[in-house]
Structure formats: structure tokens, C-alpha cells
């Protein structure tokens, strides 16, 4: 699903984002990317989203070398991935339904497809009764569930989540993780950057630890190693 071949990202000011990273993430995997602030997690996420270009190395997603994609091809790459952020990034002037439908609208889905898919995905994240609510009428957890619904409504094979539980209390964070686990169970590959030790320890998934831009540890099933 994702293959990083000796990827390095050095910013204009000389700061190292990631350094000589090589990774192979198989379809259907659930991978935690962990590490302290400034370790390179966000740089890695931005590289996967093609928000930043690697200084050297190649990144393959679904067997496509995304480092050589032109600006025009980026939207089609992003349609293969859903994205969830710590700050939800919902549109305040749109309802829950409209926020989710928006993701389908911008890629040209018909109103019929939208009417069919949005209620189903809202039901999946438990928000069918909040369809007409605006983001400011929702709790943090509900907002993140809306963002999740938006990320998966187009059925992407890959979901990238950058600190999705960072703004949530522990109980709500668990609800989100359960939904993510369900999404993964249905076949979507998930790459999730987090600081949440308890969640990583409990879920026992693949964990990649990054420090100073390098991969320090990559274990098949495990927890958050405090050493790093």
C-alpha cells in the first residue's frame, strides 16, 4: 500500500524532517506512528499527503511513485486517501450532513450517490441523528466522528490520521479508536500518528517509532515504548 524508499526531507532552513526512512506498509494494516513532538511524525504525514516533497528518495502509494506526480495529478492521489486531523477541520457554516456530502460533491458525485452514501456513513459513525446539526452544536467527539465520516465517505483504501484523538478526552478518544478499528476491519489501511500511549499499548497494532527524523523501532504488534 505504502512504500518509502530511503526518503529524506530537509527543509529550507536546514531542519531535518525525516532522514533516510524506508518503510513498507501492506494493504489492510493498522499502523501507529509514534514519537515525541518534533520527531518527524508530521513531516512523514505531510510527505504521504504530498503536501511536501521529499528532498531525496521515493514514495509509492498503491504502486504509484507519488514523488513524480504533477500538481494536476495530486487530487486523484488524494481521492485514494481519507484524512483526519487533530483540529477536525469542519466547515462551520455547513451541517454534519453537508460536511460529509461536501467530500463527495467536490469529486463530482451525483446527488443520488450522495443521498445514498452519506446517511450510511453517518450511521456507521453513530451520527445519523445529528445530520442537521452544525459543528458548533457538536461535542469534540462528534466533530471528530463527522471528520471521520467525511474521510471515509468516498471509500478510500487508505486513511491517514494525524493525532485524531489529540483534542479529545480519554473516553471520547476510545470511541474514535473503536470506529477507526471498525474501518480498518473493513479493509482500509490506516496510518495514525499519535501521542496517546494508552491507546497504542491497548490496541497492539504495528508501531513505528520515529526520533530525530529516523525510524528507531518498527514492531509488528506492540505498545508505546517510553524509552523513545
Amino acid at each position: 500500500m505504502i512504500y518509502l524508499d530511503n526518503v529524506t526531507k530537509i527543509y529550507g532552513n536546514g531542519a531535518v524532517g525525516v532522514k533516510n526512512i524506508s518503510l513498507d506498509i501492506k494493504p489492510g494494516e493498522f499502523v501507529f506512528i509514534v514519537g515525541s513532538s518534533g520527531s518527524g511524525k508530521s513531516s512523514l504525514m505531510k510527505l504521504l499527503l504530498k503536501e511536501r516533497e521529499p528532498t531525496t528518495g521515493n514514495i509509492y502509494i498503491n504502486n504509484t511513485n507519488i514523488t513524480v506526480l504533477s500538481h494536476k495529478e495530486i487530487p486523484y492521489l488524494r481521492r485514494q486517501m481519507g484524512v483526519v486531523f487533530q483540529d477536525f477541520r469542519l466547515l462551520p457554516n455547513k451541517t454534519v450532513y453537508e460536511n460529509v456530502a461536501f467530500a463527495m460533491q467536490v469529486i463530482g458525485c451525483s446527488p443520488r450517490e450522495i443521498r445514498r452514501s452519506v446517511p450510511a456513513v453517518l450511521a456507521m459513525v453513530g451520527l445519523q441523528r445529528k445530520a442537521k446539526a452544525y459543528p458548533n452544536q457538536l461535542s469534540g467527539g462528534e466533530q471528530q466522528r463527522t471528520a471521520l465520516a467525511r474521510a471515509i465517505v468516498n471509500k478510500p483504501p487508505l486513511l491517514i490520521a494525524d493525532e485524531p484523538t489529540g483534542n479529545l478526552d480519554p473516553d471520547t478518544a476510545w470511541e474514535i479508536m473503536e470506529i477507526l478499528d471498525d474501518i480498518n476491519y473493513m479493509g482500509t489501511t490506516i496510518v495514525l500518528a499519535t501521542h496517546a500511549k494508552e491507546i497504542v499499548d491497548y490496541m497492539q497494532k504495528r508501531v513505528i517509532t520515529i526520533k530525530n527524523g529516523n525510524v528507531l523501532r518498527d514492531i509488528e504488534k506492540g505498545g508505546y515504548d517510553d524509552e523513545y
Partner: peptide, 16 residues
């Protein structure tokens, strides 16, 4: 700006 940003992440083309 927010909306444009989200549009970019969900795969909207520049022309859209």
C-alpha cells in the same frame, strides 16, 4: 481558506 484547504485534501481539482 479553510474550505479550500479541505477541498484540496478530499481531492478537489484546481478547476473545481
Amino acid at each position: 481558506k479553510n474550505e479550500i484547504n479541505i477541498m484540496k485534501y478530499v481531492g478537489a481539482t484546481d478547476w473545481f
